[in-house]
Amino acid sequence: DEFHFHWNGRDIRVRGDSEELRRLIEAIKRGELSEEEIERAIEILER
């Protein structure tokens, strides 16, 4: 699976399928994380 979302003017695409990944992306979409937490998560996910 590939998750695709927009954040902070960026087009983010992440491959993978796990419950943890889904929860993280939902939290990002709901605005539950700080900008710094989101940046760090995206860096890890894009590897």
Rank of each mutant, 00 (worst) to 15 (best):
D1A: 10
D1Q: 12
D1M: 12
D1R: 03
D1V: 13
E2L: 07
E2R: 03
E2S: 08
E2C: 08
E2D: 13
E2H: 12
E2G: 09
E2W: 12
F3G: 03
F3H: 05
F3N: 04
F3E: 04
F3R: 03
H4G: 04
H4F: 13
H4L: 13
H4Y: 13
H4Q: 10
H4M: 14
H4P: 02
H4K: 08
H4T: 14
F5K: 00
F5Y: 05
F5D: 00
F5V: 03
H6V: 12
H6W: 08
H6S: 08
H6G: 02
H6I: 14
W7K: 01
W7T: 01
W7C: 01
W7L: 05
W7R: 01
W7F: 07
W7N: 01
N8D: 03
N8L: 05
N8I: 02
N8M: 07
N8R: 10
N8K: 14
G9S: 02
G9L: 00
G9W: 00
G9V: 00
R10V: 05
R10I: 05
R10T: 04
R10H: 07
R10M: 04
D11H: 08
D11C: 06
D11R: 05
D11M: 10
D11P: 14
D11T: 14
D11I: 13
D11N: 06
D11V: 15
D11Y: 10
I12P: 00
I12A: 00
I12V: 08
I12W: 14
I12G: 00
R13M: 15
R13S: 15
R13N: 15
R13Y: 15
R13E: 15
R13P: 11
R13I: 15
V14F: 08
V14Q: 01
V14K: 01
V14G: 05
V14S: 02
V14H: 03
R15S: 14
R15G: 10
R15F: 14
R15L: 12
R15K: 15
R15P: 15
R15I: 13
R15M: 12
G16Q: 07
G16D: 06
G16Y: 06
G16N: 06
G16I: 10
D17R: 04
D17K: 07
D17S: 08
D17P: 13
D17Q: 06
D17W: 08
D17A: 07
D17H: 09
S18C: 15
S18Y: 06
S18N: 12
S18F: 05
S18P: 07
S18A: 06
S18L: 09
S18D: 10
S18I: 08
E19I: 12
E19M: 10
E19Y: 09
E19W: 07
E20G: 08
E20Y: 08
E20S: 09
E20N: 08
E20T: 08
E20L: 10
E20W: 06
L21H: 14
L21S: 14
L21Y: 08
L21M: 12
L21C: 06
L21W: 12
L21I: 14
R22M: 14
R22D: 05
R22W: 14
R22E: 06
R22K: 13
R23C: 07
R23Q: 14
R23Y: 12
R23H: 11
R23D: 14
R23L: 07
L24H: 02
L24P: 00
L24W: 06
L24S: 01
L24N: 01
L24C: 02
I25D: 08
I25R: 02
I25S: 04
I25L: 09
I25P: 00
I25Q: 04
I25E: 05
I25N: 03
I25T: 05
E26L: 14
E26N: 13
E26G: 11
E26P: 01
A27W: 09
A27I: 07
A27E: 10
A27G: 09
A27Y: 09
I28E: 01
I28D: 00
I28Q: 01
I28S: 01
I28F: 05
K29V: 15
K29L: 14
K29D: 09
K29Q: 13
K29F: 11
K29I: 13
K29M: 10
K29P: 02
K29T: 13
R30W: 09
R30D: 11
R30T: 14
R30N: 14
G31V: 02
G31A: 07
G31T: 02
G31Y: 06
G31D: 09
E32H: 11
E32Q: 11
E32M: 09
E32S: 13
E32D: 13
E32P: 02
E32K: 07
E32I: 12
E32R: 03
L33M: 14
L33A: 03
L33W: 11
S34Y: 03
S34W: 02
S34L: 05
S34R: 07
E35A: 10
E35G: 10
E35S: 13
E35K: 11
E35Y: 12
E35P: 14
E35H: 14
E35N: 13
E36S: 12
E36C: 03
E36V: 11
E36I: 11
E36K: 11
E37S: 04
E37H: 04
E37A: 10
E37N: 04
E37R: 02
E37Q: 10
E37I: 02
E37L: 04
I38E: 04
I38Y: 03
I38Q: 03
I38N: 02
I38D: 00
I38S: 03
I38M: 14
I38V: 11
E39T: 10
E39C: 02
E39I: 07
E39D: 12
E39S: 08
R40F: 09
R40E: 12
R40Q: 14
R40T: 11
R40I: 12
R40H: 13
R40N: 12
A41D: 02
A41F: 07
A41M: 10
A41Q: 08
A41E: 05
A41I: 14
A41V: 11
A41W: 14
A41N: 04
A41R: 08
A41Y: 07
I42A: 02
I42G: 00
I42V: 09
I42L: 08
I42F: 04
I42Y: 04
E43P: 03
E43H: 06
E43D: 12
E43V: 06
E43A: 08
I44M: 09
I44R: 07
I44L: 11
L45R: 00
L45M: 07
L45F: 14
L45H: 02
L45N: 01
L45I: 12
L45G: 01
E46G: 03
E46V: 08
E46C: 02
E46F: 06
E46M: 13
R47N: 15
R47S: 15
R47T: 15
R47Q: 15
R47P: 12
R47F: 15
R47L: 15
R47M: 15
R47C: 13
